[in-house]
Design a protein around this nucleic acid. Structure first.
Lengths: 192, 192
DNA sequence: ACCTGAACACCGTTCAAGT
DNA sequence: ACCTGAACACCGTTCAAGT
């Protein structure tokens, strides 16, 4: 995990994520990262202005990843809206038990957003991007206008909740298709 | 906000919540609370073992409040399951713009849970209690067994997400009844 | 019982000096 | 360009002494 090669911002960021996922939010501290990488604090402060800058960079990185995941699923041809949405939900909720990974990242990022406007912007961008994707899919399923948007923001909220519950399998839905069908299916006895 | 009366754990907790809601998670620090209350740190450490103990006490308090809210709504007579569930969702998502109140509390609590098993227990208890309530309502709406539980955990996840998005009205559903009806209504052409 | 004030410890941050 | 090592500052924590 450490090494003798020269350091880059990316390696600091990657290490910070590893520690966050393994040991929780308390662990993102300068000297903790330094002992992990067998470096001194001066090295850290050459790459980052301060701890907040590292966190901000972690969020930017996370934002890139979620963005490209969204794009790759949006461009997957030949999938029904239902399947695309379902895939998003499976990614958010189906993790191995005890895997606090994305759970911790998601929670930490929303927490940091409360103290840092730059983080808040990245997070809002990511949320809006996913919301737009969901809205598109629900429109494609036959809903239009405000109702599609309303349902999409509900699904988006559910995704946020599921990401944070991913470590607790007892609290996650056993039948994701069921709820997604319920949200996408046209009203009984109404327009297609 | 401060005063000359003797201090109690409850006043520390209340002040900590006020600061959290007004100024974000960074503000829960011993000397920040002390200047707010014109007291010295020794006073804080007479009431609490350390900062983690304050946070833990905040979570216990929050847990009491959410618990009693749930009970009072569960015992409201003459309301349909639909109305009871809707009321929960309105409470979670309809806050005045810029009111980061419950938003910050919800996020902070989930963040602290990552570092403190006692917090994690309180949080899991609260989640499970709400999940049980939702499951009951969905059963009452005509769904049975595993499917009711699955739908309830989806609704619970949505509630968590909505609590955290409450500060961003652009991202919350405009038609909550619509999504709730979709989740509670029996399948088109199936058992009641 | 509850609080003050000073001491100490830890860790974030800076910086001059090294390669 | 990238890092070390030591210094400093901030804030969490302790504790003897006060009321």
């Amino acid at each position: 995990m450490s090494g003798k090669q020269r350091m880059t911002r990316e390696r600091w960021i990657a290490t910070a994520f590893e520690l966050l996922l393994l040991e929780g939010p308390k662990v993102i501290r300068v000297d903790r990262l330094c002992t992990e990488l067998t470096l001194t604090k001066g090295s850290f402060y050459w790459h980052f202005k301060d701890l907040a800058a590292l966190k901000s960079a972690m969020v930017s990185h996370w934002r890139q990843v979620t963005r490209s995941e969204l794009i790759s699923s949006a461009t997957a041809d030949g999938q029904s809206p239902r399947d695309l949405v379902l895939k998003l939900f499976e990614a958010a909720s189906l993790r191995q038990p005890g895997d606090h990974a994305a759970t911790m990242a998601s929670i930490a990022i929303r927490h940091w957003a409360g103290a840092d406007p730059a983080v808040r912007r990245d997070l809002a961008d990511a949320d809006n991007e996913r919301l737009a994707f969901l809205t598109t899919q629900i429109r494609a399923a036959g809903w239009s206008g405000a109702e599609a948007r309303s349902r999409a923001s509900f699904l988006n909220a559910a995704l946020i909740g599921l990401e944070q519950l991913a470590g607790e399998p007892a609290q996650t839905p056993t039948n994701l298709s069921g709820v997604i069908d319920a949200m996408l299916a046209p009203k009984a006895g109404s327009q297609a």
